[in-house]
Structures are given as structure tokens and as C-alpha cells.
């Protein structure tokens, strides 16, 4: 192995690491606010990438119908809830209609737009508009009713949601993978390295998103409120910050991060309906390195996972996954020896 190959591998590792970093951040965020280990995170990557690919093919992605269907279920639940409370006539119908307004608009927009000749940036926006709202809806349907359940129950529900979404992905997008068109075909040559425009996009967008999240959590009221919820849920509730709203906002952010990651990597690799799980799992390894609580450590861990994966695939490709996932064992050992964690429950 010479210096040039090492450079290539590092470049590949950093691109992968940037995506894992985003997913790790989302996992840490969701876990610290809602205590949910967000297994379906990877599905947003796959759904984002495949929705984008379907739009580029000029077809209506089936995810819009999922959005409409999930919203309809949420609306029915709202009606039933208000019906039991006796407020059906006053606010019930209005609240239910409000839930359906946004998905109906997205469906109308998707059907009305000439999908085949849209500029790429509009397609990205449309993909985000379709896929991201699925995340808060997921929180409403699957996690909000059991928000106070133990971590293990939440984990099991997360696994169930993941399995259901993977199954839907197969029905929506078929078994074969797709690639999307690159955002730009430009490439920069630095010495022996040939960096493609898309790789720059991935790293730059990841860095920008991480910075934006950091600003959001340190400088905005909502960000601070989310952090407060992460530190002490009951305390935040006493201060008038609704944990339901915190949950929805967190899921919205996680969905945004996942979908954006999917849209970003779709031009450099082939995405299948079930690709998301493995990508999400590697993000999870990174999040574990950060102890599921620290954003900078998780980002550093993600970079480590990306580089390790890239170099392992050069030296011992047959054991690549083994090497990446074995990383978790020394980290867990070290963490369990050094930290004295007190269970809140």
C-alpha cells in the first residue's frame, strides 16, 4: 500500500463517515429526548433516496400515499380521542381536517407537477416534503401512546416499525436497487486524488447540517427546550414544555437528517429498499462510541467507523463488517468500566 492508495481510502472513508456522522447525531438526539433507540432511522435514508430516484424517473412515488394513509390514521385517532372527550363537535373535526391538510397538498403537488422535467433542486425539496413528515407521524402513531414505557418496550416497538417499513419499501420500490443522477458532474483533481462533486456535496452538507444543529441547540429557544427535555423530562414538563411536542420535533429533525443523507448518497452508491438498516447500524456504532449522549464524540466515532470500514475493505474485505462491528466491544468495555451510569427509572 502506498501513499496514494491511502489517500483514496481516506477520501472514501471520510465520505462514508460524514453520512454515519449525520445518522449518529440523529440517533443520539432521538435517544436523549425520547429514550427511543431509533432503528427506523435507516429507512429514512432508503426512502429518501428511492423517492428521489422515482421522481427522477418521472413517476409518482408510493411514499406520498404512505404519507396520506398515515395522516388519515392519525386523523381517525384524533377524532376518536376527541369523541371520547366529548369535544368532537367543537374542535374534533377541525383538528382532524388540519392533520389531513398538509398531506393532501403534497399529494396534489406531486400529481400536478411535471415530474420528469423538474430541476433537481425542486425534486430534492419535494422528496423532503414527502418523506420527512413521515417521522413525526411515526412518533404520533407508534411512540406517543407509549412515551412513558421502559426503554426496552420502546426498542421493541422501534424494531417493529423498522420491519414494517422495510416491508413497505419492498412493495413501493421493488427489490432492485437504483442510483440517482449526481447533483453536479464536476470533479476537482488535488494531486493524485480525483474528488467528485458529489463527495464534496456530501461532506459539505454534513458539516453544514452539524453546524446548524449545533446552532439550533445552543442558540434557539426550541433547541434549548429539547436539550432541557433530554436532561430532565419531568423538569422540562414543569417548565411548560410539552414532551409530546418535543418528541414530534425530535422525530422531525431525525427524519430530515435521514432523508437528506439518503438524497446525498444516492448518486454515489446503489440504494436498495433495505440498505438503510446497515447504514443506520453503522451510525449506531458511532453513536455508541459517543455513549448515546455526546454529539461531538458521536461525530468523531462516525469518522472512525468510516475510515475503519474503508481501510478494512482494502486489507481484509471478507472481514470488513466483522471489523467494523467488533469495534463496539472494546468501546462498551471501556465505557462500562469508566462511567457510573445511574438508571433514571
Amino acid at each position: 500500500m502506498d501513499f496514494q492508495i491511502a489517500l483514496f481510502l481516506a477520501q472514501d472513508g471520510i465520505t462514508g463517515g460524514a453520512i454515519y456522522a449525520l445518522l449518529a447525531l440523529a440517533l443520539v438526539l432521538v435517544f436523549s429526548v425520547t429514550r427511543v433507540i431509533f432503528i427506523p432511522q435507516g429507512e429514512f435514508v432508503a426512502f429518501g433516496a428511492l423517492t428521489m430516484a422515482t421522481l427522477q424517473a418521472g413517476q409518482t412515488p408510493a411514499t406520498v400515499w404512505l404519507l396520506l394513509g398515515a395522516s388519515a390514521v392519525a386523523a381517525v385517532i384524533e377524532l376518536w380521542r376527541q369523541g371520547r372527550r366529548g369535544s368532537l363537535a367543537t374542535t374534533g373535526w377541525r383538528d382532524a381536517a388540519k392533520l389531513l391538510l398538509y398531506p393532501a397538498a403534497v399529494v396534489a403537488l406531486t400529481l400536478a407537477l411535471p415530474l420528469a422535467d423538474l430541476p433537481n433542486i425542486v425534486r430534492v425539496a419535494l422528496t423532503l416534503a414527502i418523506v420527512v413528515p413521515l417521522a413525526p407521524l411515526m412518533y404520533r402513531l407508534a411512540f406517543q401512546p407509549i412515551a412513558e414505557a421502559p426503554v426496552l418496550v420502546l426498542l421493541i416497538v422501534a424494531v417493529a416499525v423498522h420491519v414494517a417499513l422495510v416491508g413497505m419499501g419492498l412493495v413501493f420500490f421493488g427489490a432492485e436497487g437504483t442510483r440517482t443522477e449526481a447533483f453536479s458532474d464536476a470533479s476537482i483533481a488535488i494531486g493524485p486524488l480525483d474528488i467528485s462533486g458529489q463527495q464534496i456535496w456530501v461532506v459539505a452538507a454534513s458539516a453544514a447540517l452539524i453546524l446548524a444543529l449545533w446552532r439550533f441547540f445552543s442558540a434557539t429557544l426550541y433547541g434549548k427546550a429539547l436539550r432541557a427535555t433530554a436532561v430532565n423530562r419531568n423538569g422540562a414538563r414543569l417548565m411548560g414544555f410539552s414532551p409530546v411536542f418535543a418528541g414530534k420535533l425530535t422525530f422531525l429533525l431525525a427524519g430530515l437528517i435521514g432523508t437528506l443523507s439518503g438524497v446525498l448518497i444516492a448518486p454515489i452508491t446503489t440504494i436498495y429498499y433495505d440498505t438503510g438498516f446497515l447504514i443506520g447500524l453503522k451510525g449506531f456504532v458511532a453513536a455508541i462510541i459517543g455513549g448515546l449522549g455526546s454529539f461531538p464524540l458521536a461525530a468523531a466515532g462516525a469518522l472512525l467507523v468510516g475510515l475503519l470500514e474503508s481501510f478494512a475493505s482494502f486489507w481484509a474485505s471478507a472481514y470488513k463488517e466483522v471489523i467494523v462491528f467488533t469495534l463496539i466491544i472494546p468501546v462498551l468495555l471501556w465505557r462500562s468500566l469508566t462511567s457510573h451510569h445511574v438508571e433514571e427509572e
Partner: peptide
């Protein structure tokens, strides 16, 4: 003799080798 997995997102390392 290089290996990869169906779900891999990159085979750059193997291909370089």
C-alpha cells in the same frame, strides 16, 4: 481475491487493491 456484501455502499477499497 476480494469480497463484498450485497448491501455495501462502497467497494473502493477492494477495487483499489
Amino acid at each position: 481475491t476480494e469480497r463484498f456484501n450485497r448491501t455495501d455502499t462502497s467497494v473502493s477499497g477492494q477495487v483499489l487493491k
